[in-house]
Design a protein around this nucleic acid. Structure first.
Lengths: 288, 288
DNA sequence: CGTGGAACGAAAGTTGGTCTTACATGTCGC
DNA sequence: GCGACATGTAAGACCAACTTTCGTTCCACG
């Protein structure tokens, strides 16, 4: 109820502490980035408030009185603890990993391969990419950011900031060999996880009959694209993910319409952001 | 060289500490005698400076994050030490005795007998009267004040404040019986310490021949006056000291001229003053 | 001895951090 | 649904803290 009730001004205490440490008003001023006059005023005020002489001014030099000596000791310990606490916090925050959650395949197929480029610029910053269920409370779960593929019509939550990275069409692709086989898309095998309702919904939008589709479940997004390249079946992906494969002729696009366009975006919880988080988010923009 | 170099604003840390203790911005504001808005702003600023979320705002309540918890712990210890140090100092100062030095007889013969009156008003304040050599550095020796008899022409030192109490003539006195003996002052025995150059100088001012004086050395001022009363010899004193004796007829004044007039004064070191010192100095004015 | 450098002292002026004010929003208990 | 009580935000006010300026003292050095 009253810890602060009758405590002298903290800045005055700080000025005295600096004076005690340096043994000089001028030097204390330098430590605190203020003028000597500011320090003398503060110490004077402190002495007045406590009704005790804390320093003895002997000409050009300043020495602590016995009372000042005792107070200085207590302040040194106290402020030292405060300083240590803040320093420890800063230290811990600086070396904490950047935790990124993602609900799409973009991380594994696009971000991860480029991570070395980030580490080259920011050595020492640990980044943890972790796949997570779609809807997640970033702050609550301790994540620093999310990379999400937003379909049109998304709305920003009040406690989240969304920074769009790029827009990319969802395309259906398959190996050139499979395309050359003459099979219609409806008759091709499709590399799609059984549990992936989102991707199934995408394909349904093209008019294909999902129920009649022959599906191949690879278990992992990264393997899926690999499977497509090897001709095991057709699949969907965003253009940006398979751009290289398309250009290199490892994959070709199937002429399906009705596939959506998604916006890749980084989602950051509102509030203070660590430099490492800021850096990673900024770097993400550069690679898209 | 750099303890304070990169420390957040102390008032922000204080605001956060209060918030952590009370678990509420509003309550913290009450503790610090500020509005809740001031606290929220301070905590927000602190979070921004440290780039760390310290509290989680969940509707109407506020809970600390893990980082906040750790910082709060450190701050609690740190500020606690500061607070304890200040409190200890205040405590020690409050119960420290008031040390008064005096170079004259006034203390023993006038102040001491009236001390009970001071203690009646200010119980618990210890007062130490101590006789000391004439010139003394109050601050250096740890005295709170001096009671001195100043001869005219005194000048105030730069680091001392002089508060005149009263002016009093120096008078030569003796017992009525001695006065009735018919002896001239020059032929009377004089109760004067051999080492007391000041008093000897006083008498020399009256034209008496000190060298031819028959002197009685009692060793203590208090005994000297007593010796005069008992007729052992004549002596000098200020009027205020022997007023009662003169009125009661225990002493009579010798018709000597050329004796000085002194100003009793309390001398206080400049700078902060404890309440007890202030009180004693104020009380001194009331008894003169 | 005087001259320059470096420290403290005092007073007046200025500024920016801190606080208040005012209003909006959100949550809980009834 | 309403009142009580919490937090959020913005804009302006205020005052403590700081700078500036000038003076003084002390010491080192040629």
């Amino acid at each position: 109820m009253s810890r602060w009730r009758d405590l002298p001004s903290l800045s005055a205490l700080r000025a005295f502490d600096a004076t005690a440490q340096s043994g000089s008003f001028a030097e204390a001023g330098r430590m605190l980035n203020v003028t000597h006059a500011a320090v003398t005023q503060a110490v004077r005020g402190l002495e007045a408030e406590l009704s005790v002489a804390l320093v003895r001014r002997a000409g050009r030099t300043v020495v602590l009185t016995e009372a000042g000596e005792r107070l200085a000791k207590a302040l040194d310990a106290g402020f030292g603890a405060v300083e240590a606490g803040v320093a420890a916090l800063r230290e811990a925050e600086a070396r904490r990993v950047v935790r990124v959650t993602t609900t799409t395949y973009i991380a594994e197929t696009y971000v991860m391969p480029r991570l070395p480029g980030f580490w080259a610029k920011h050595p020492g910053v640990e980044v943890a990419l972790s796949p997570s269920p779609e809807k997640i409370d970033l702050g609550r779960e301790g994540f620093d950011m999310a990379i999400r593929a937003l379909t049109d019509g998304w709305v920003e939550m009040p406690d989240e900031e969304i920074r769009p990275l790029c827009r990319s069409r969802v395309v259906a692709v398959c190996a050139p060999s499979l395309a050359a086989s003459g099979l219609a898309p409806q008759d091709m095998p499709w590399v799609i996880g059984n549990a992936n309702h989102w991707e199934l919904a995408e394909i349904a939008g093209t008019g294909l009959d999902i129920a009649r589709l022959k599906r191949v479940d690879m278990g992992s997004p990264h393997l899926e694209l690999q499977a497509c390249r090897q001709g095991l079946g057709a699949g969907t992906a965003t253009e940006i993910i398979c751009r290289d494969d398309l250009e290199a002729g490892r994959l070709v696009e199937l002429p399906l319409t009705g596939l959506p366009v998604v916006t890749y975006a980084v989602v950051l919880p509102r509030g203070p952001r660590r430099p490492a988080v800021q850096a990673f988010a900024a770097w993400l923009r550069t690679i898209f």
